[in-house]
């Protein structure tokens, strides 16, 4: 990788309205939290340069989108070429948890990624700063149920964060960056090798890798 131009990694944040997508992005990129965020309309992104594994310089381009379902059908151009997708829910809102698989499916349909089977997703449960009694009851059980039955039983990395109190946000996005970089390298490989058969082989190879990444 060294000697090459700095890699741009494209990350999409999805999830129900109000789970804290904008707040997560702002906390990670600008280290700030505001009470005055508005409901996001359309899409926007922020970028941040980070170093992975102490030597790889990458630029994360993090896309924040509107949570209202009907807006997803428009302007999906920004899904194209994504390297990682962050699925968010609100730990106080069970419905947002239940909708994770819809967001995943929607993303795969719209983004047209080459490897839907093992495209890197990461799950973030936000707002852990709230009172315990407000949280979804037996959350881990429900979450397990969803990953096993709806998300295809894959071991997607899971983080619980507080964008408000800056808990776990940094470490979640470090993992996002690593996963995105792997995907980017895969895409590069795909770009260089036109053989479909060969692509399949790479997919199989990477399935093991994504397992290693689960934290």
């Amino acid at each position: 990788m060294s000697g090459r131009k700095k890699t741009l990694l494209k990350v999409i944040i999805l999830g129900d309205s109000g789970v804290g997508k904008t707040s997560l992005m702002q906390q990670f990129v600008n280290n700030k939290f505001s009470h005055q965020y508005k409901a996001t309309i359309g899409a926007d992104f922020l970028t941040k340069d980070i170093t992975i594994d102490g030597n790889k310089q990458v630029t994360l381009q993090i896309w924040d989108t509107a949570g209202q379902e009907r807006f997803q059908s428009l302007g999906v151009a920004f899904y194209r070429g994504a390297d990682c997708c962050v699925l968010c829910y609100d730990v106080t809102n069970e419905k947002s948890l239940n909708n994770l698989s819809s967001w995943k499916d929607e993303f795969l349909v719209q983004s047209n990624v080459s490897n839907p089977q093992d495209f890197p997703f990461i799950i973030i449960g936000n707002k852990i700063d709230v009172d315990e009694n407000k949280k979804i009851s037996s959350l881990s059980k429900k979450l397990n149920n969803i990953t096993n039955n709806q998300l295809g039983g894959l071991n997607y990395p899971v983080f619980e964060t507080s964008a408000k109190d800056a808990i776990n946000v940094e470490s979640a996005f470090e993992v996002v960056a690593k996963m995105a970089l792997q995907q980017e390298e895969l895409n590069d490989a795909n770009g260089n090798d036109v053989s479909d058969d060969y692509n399949d082989a790479i997919n199989i190879h990477l399935e093991g890798d994504s397992g290693n990444c689960a934290c």
Binding site: I41, G42, A43, L74, G75, A77, F78
Partner: peptide
Amino acid sequence: ESTDLFFFFRMLL
């Protein structure tokens, strides 16, 4: 590749 004018979405909505 911007003729979809997506950047107007928020402005128009």
